[in-house]
Computed example of a mutant assay.
Amino acid sequence: MAKVLMSTSYDPNFPPENVLTNNTKEFWMSTGLFPQEILLSLSSPSTPRNLRLACSNVRHVVIEGCEGNHLGNFTKVGETEIGSNGGDIQKETVDLNVSRPVNFLKIVFLSGWDEFISVHLVKVD
């Protein structure tokens, strides 16, 4: 199971931990500037194959991974562009290219279709 360590935006009404609840009515909301990030700690080193997102107004996402027990050198392991759908929930699976076990994943939202984005669900498979 993953755990949220940090996000670049924080609103007590929409905390970043909401992305892991499996309830799409709970979500994390950005502050409106880009890039935005969510940093996840994995429960054990692993080589995930994909990352599933349920979000809104997200346009360009990069996923980075970090080996070892200390935050440091992140490398890009996935990237996608998500088409606009008028603010409705977007469901996207990002294929990951992880060749060595990682302890941390960083989701970097480089741009959105609006000033604000929301992330309703993050699943690491």
Rank of each mutant, 00 (worst) to 15 (best):
T21G: 08
D88C: 00
N85H: 03
V108W: 03
T80F: 00
W28I: 07
L33K: 14
S44I: 02
M1G: 15
K106S: 11
P101S: 09
S56H: 01
A54V: 14
P12Q: 12
Y10Q: 11
C55Y: 01
L96H: 07
H60M: 06
A2Y: 12
T80I: 12
L71S: 04
H70C: 05
S118E: 09
L33S: 14
G86L: 04
S30E: 05
V122E: 10
D114Y: 13
L96P: 01
Q36H: 06
A54T: 12
V102K: 01
V94F: 00
D88H: 04
F116D: 06
D114E: 13
E26P: 02
G112H: 05
V102R: 02
L105T: 08
V108R: 14
K3H: 15
A54L: 13
V77M: 02
V98F: 03
F34T: 02
S9R: 08
L53S: 07
G32S: 00
K91M: 06
P12I: 13
G87D: 01
F14G: 08
E37D: 11
V119Q: 07
V119R: 06
A54E: 12
V62G: 03
N103E: 07
L40F: 07
E26Y: 07
D114R: 13
G87M: 04
E64A: 08
K25V: 06
E67A: 12
L71W: 00
I107R: 03
G86W: 01
S84Y: 07
V119Y: 08
S99M: 12
G32T: 01
R100T: 15
N57Y: 10
I89N: 02
S7D: 11
E37N: 13
T93E: 13
S44F: 08
L20R: 10
F74A: 05
L96C: 03
F34D: 01
G112E: 06
P16F: 05
T8Y: 12
E17A: 13
V94M: 03
P45Y: 03
P15K: 11
H60A: 09
L53E: 04
L42I: 11
E81N: 08
S84C: 04
E115K: 15
N23W: 01
D114T: 09
G72Y: 00
I63G: 03
R49F: 09
T93I: 07
K91D: 01
A2F: 13
C55W: 02
L105G: 06
R100G: 02
N85V: 06
F14N: 14
R49P: 00
H120E: 14
H120L: 15
C66S: 05
